[in-house]
Simulated assay, not measured.
Amino acid sequence: MGVITFHFDFPSPIPQAKMFKAAILDADNLLPKVLPQAVKSVEVLEGDGGPGTIKLMTFAEGNPYKTAKHKVEVLDKENFTYCYSIIEGEMLGTTFEKITHEVKINALPLGGSMLKCTDSYFTAEEINTWKEKVSAMYEAIEDYLLANPDAY
């Protein structure tokens, strides 16, 4: 099996720094609030949030998965870049060794931001489902920030 990588962009009216702070730096707290039907909790198992940190995401009841263990690969606050790998959990099954998600948040010239995402898998079967879930996560964060303009 080889790695299959795909890219997608998610434009947002939310400014670059605000989106990075919410979607990346505070995601552990924000995801259970904006996606309670999907994410029950995120806890740091080891590390300080930077590269090498291991996190455990617990999914809400009714989801096909119970948990996913993430490893932070890159956290670059100056360049608004983040990368993590799912290294354990039911979603890997026997098909995937890991799933890696990279995001770079760029400022747009007229305001807002562009999230440039790259996901890498060892098979193509789950790609569209994963892309939809990642897009839904950023949409939920965007909706929250639009509804709460003073947050962050």
Score class of each variant (00 low, 15 high):
L25I: 04
A107D: 13
P11Q: 06
I14C: 06
K104C: 09
H70S: 15
L45E: 14
T67W: 00
A23Q: 02
V72H: 03
I99P: 07
N106R: 14
G112Q: 04
K104P: 06
N106W: 13
Y65D: 10
V39P: 10
N148T: 04
H101K: 05
P32Q: 12
C83Q: 07
V72Y: 09
L110N: 13
D26A: 11
E88F: 03
H101D: 14
C83W: 08
S41A: 09
A38C: 07
G112W: 10
N79M: 04
V44C: 09
Y138T: 05
V74S: 02
F80E: 01
E125V: 15
I54Y: 07
A107K: 10
E97R: 11
Q37C: 08
L108R: 14
K71R: 07
M1F: 03
M91K: 08
I141H: 00
Y144I: 00
E142L: 04
M91W: 03
I24T: 00
Y82L: 03
E88N: 01
D28P: 01
A38Q: 15
A60W: 01
D48S: 11
E73Y: 12
E139N: 08
P32E: 06
C117Q: 12
F96I: 09
F96C: 14
P51F: 02
A136I: 06
T58W: 02
T95Q: 13
T129Q: 14
K66G: 08
P149T: 00
K77Y: 05
G111R: 12
E73M: 15
V39G: 03
K55W: 01
T53D: 05
G2T: 07
I127F: 13
K66P: 10
W130Y: 13
Q37W: 11
K133A: 12
C117S: 09
K104V: 13
Q37G: 08
D76C: 12
P149L: 01
L92C: 06
V44W: 07
F20A: 01
L45M: 08
I105P: 14
E126Y: 15
G62R: 08
E102V: 15
M1Y: 03
A22W: 01
N79D: 05
M19E: 06
K40Y: 11
H70W: 11
D119Y: 08
V44S: 11
K77L: 09
K69I: 00
G50V: 09
D48H: 07
V74P: 13
S85Y: 01
N63Y: 05
V72G: 12
S41H: 02
